[in-house]
Write a protein that binds this DNA or RNA. Structure first.
Lengths: 238, 238
DNA sequence: TGACAATGACTGACCAGTCAGTCATAAATG
DNA sequence: CATTTATGACTGACTGGTCAGTCATTGTCA
C-alpha cells in the first residue's frame, strides 16, 4: 500500500460535477428574510440537507464500506463532527439516507396523471417513461444499484425497500395487469401472477446504464416499448 | 465503534460449513500414500483452490471493501502471508477471482444439449432452466450480484464481464430470436433488437433470491415460463 | 451573556501488506 | 539406503497508514 494511497488521488468521489445549482440554498429561503438562512433551525436543516446530498453521492460512488466520512464532510462543506450532530453513526446515516431518498422517489413515480381515458398500456408506458427519464437515466438510478449492492448487508434497508417500494409497486402493477386483462388488452392471464415480468426491463435498464452504457448505449425507452408490444400486442407505427 | 466491534461477532462470514475434510491433516502422515496431496505442487494447487473458494465466499458475503484478508486466510486454513504467494494484492485477487469463476459458469451454461429437433422455445426454456437451477437458486447467483455491486468500482471486471458474458450471451440470444422469427415461432420482429428483454426475468430472479426471497419466495422458473408465453404465445397445459 | 452549534485535532482500533524465520520435502552425498 | 544439505512453501508477528468516532475549544445566535 504505502504510496498506493496517493496514486489514485484521495479526492472525494468523481466530483460533485453538477453542483445542484444552489437550488437548495434558496429552497430553505422560503422564509421572508432575503439574507439567506440566518435563522438557526433553517441553517441546521440546510446543513443536514447538504450532508445527505453529499453522503448520497459518496455512497453511490464508492459503496458503504469504502466511503469516508471525511469526504462526505468535505463535500458537504462541513466539519466531520457536524455529521454526528445529525446522525448517530455511519451505519444509521446510511440507512436513514436510503429511507429519505426513496420516499420522494416513489412518490414522484406514483404521481403519474391518472388520465381516466387512457388505456392500460398507456398508463404502463407513461409510468415506464417517467421511470426511465427520472431514474434510470439519472444518478438516481444508482440508488437502486446501491440497494442491490448493499442490501444483503443491511437487512433493515432491504426490508424497508421491500415494504415501501417492491411490494407496493408490484401490487400496483398487478392491479393494472388485472385491469388490462379485464379490459381485454392483455391476453396472458398468468401475467398477473408475476408483475415482476412487466417491470424487469426497467431494472435491466438501470443496471445497464451504470455498468455497460459506455460499451453499448441502450435505448431503454424503446426497449420498454418493444417489451410492452409483447404484452399488449403490437402497436408500432414506426 | 469501540464495542460495536464485538457485537456482530467478528467471525468470518456465515461459516465455512464444510471444513474441507482434513485432506491436508492426513497429508502430514506417512508420505508414501499416493492418494491426497503428498506432492509439493499438488499441495500448493490445493491451497490456492482453498483460498479462491474462501475468498469467493467472503467477498460475496461482505463485498470487496469490507472483506478482511485475515478472514479469507482463516477460512482457507492458511496463513495470511500465503495469500500473497498466490496473488499480488487484494484487488488483483478479486479481479482474478471473478474471472476464474465466470469462465466455468459460462461454459456450463452454454453446454446445453443442442437437441436438433427442438423448437426455439424449448431451447430458450432449457437454457433458462439451467440458469435458474444452476445459478439463480445457488450461491453462484450472488456472484452476479457481486458484479453488479462492485462493477462500477472495478472497470476491469465490468469490461471483462461485458466482453465474456454479456455481449456473447446477448449475441447468442439474438441469433436464437432471429431463428425463432424465421421459423414463425416469434411474432414480434423488433425483439431481436433487444435480446435483453428475453433475459431480463433471469436477472430479476437472481436479485430477488438474494434480497427478497425471505419476504416472498419467487418461483423463478414458472415466472420465466410465463414470460416465454408472452414471447412465443401460450402453451400452458397446466 | 448564556446556550447551543460547529469545528478539527486527536485517539485507538483496524487492516493490507511485509519479511525474517521455520520446517517439511527434495536433492545430493557417502 | 541412511544421512546431510538445499529449497522454497508457509507462517504470523509486525509496521505504517487509515478512518470512525470523540471532545475540548471556538464561534454564533437570541
Amino acid at each position: 500500500m504505502t504510496k498506493e494511497a496517493t496514486k489514485s488521488a484521495r479526492k472525494s468521489a468523481p466530483e460533485p460535477a453538477n453542483r445542484r445549482t444552489g437550488a437548495r440554498a434558496s429552497a430553505a429561503g422560503s422564509s421572508p428574510s432575503p439574507k439567506s438562512a440566518s435563522n438557526r433551525a433553517e441553517r441546521a436543516a440546510e446543513r443536514r440537507g447538504a450532508i445527505i446530498e453529499a453522503a448520497m453521492d459518496e455512497f453511490i460512488a464508492r459503496g458503504f464500506a469504502a466511503t469516508r466520512l471525511d469526504d462526505i464532510a468535505k463535500r458537504a462543506g462541513v466539519a466531520k463532527g457536524t455529521i454526528y450532530l445529525h446522525f448517530k453513526d455511519k451505519e444509521s446515516m446510511f440507512e436513514e439516507l436510503i429511507r429519505t431518498a426513496i420516499v420522494p422517489l416513489v412518490t414522484r413515480l406514483w404521481a403519474t396523471p391518472p388520465q381516466p381515458g387512457a388505456s392500460v398500456r398507456d398508463m404502463v408506458e407513461g409510468f415506464a417513461k417517467t421511470f426511465i427519464e427520472e431514474v434510470a437515466n439519472t444518478p438516481r438510478g444508482d440508488l437502486v444499484r446501491l440497494i442491490v449492492a448493499e442490501g444483503p448487508r443491511f437487512p433493515e434497508v432491504a426490508d424497508f425497500y421491500y415494504r415501501e417500494v417492491v411490494s407496493r409497486g408490484l401490487a400496483g402493477m398487478r392491479a393494472l395487469i388485472e385491469l388490462g386483462i379485464a379490459r381485454g388488452e392483455i391476453r396472458q392471464k398468468n401475467l398477473a401472477q408475476f408483475p415482476q415480468i412487466v417491470v424487469a426491463p426497467a431494472l435491466i435498464a438501470v443496471i445497464w446504464q451504470s455498468l455497460f452504457s459506455k460499451h453499448a448505449p441502450l435505448d431503454a425507452l424503446e426497449m420498454f416499448r418493444v417489451h410492452l408490444d409483447l404484452i399488449f400486442g403490437e402497436r408500432r407505427t414506426t
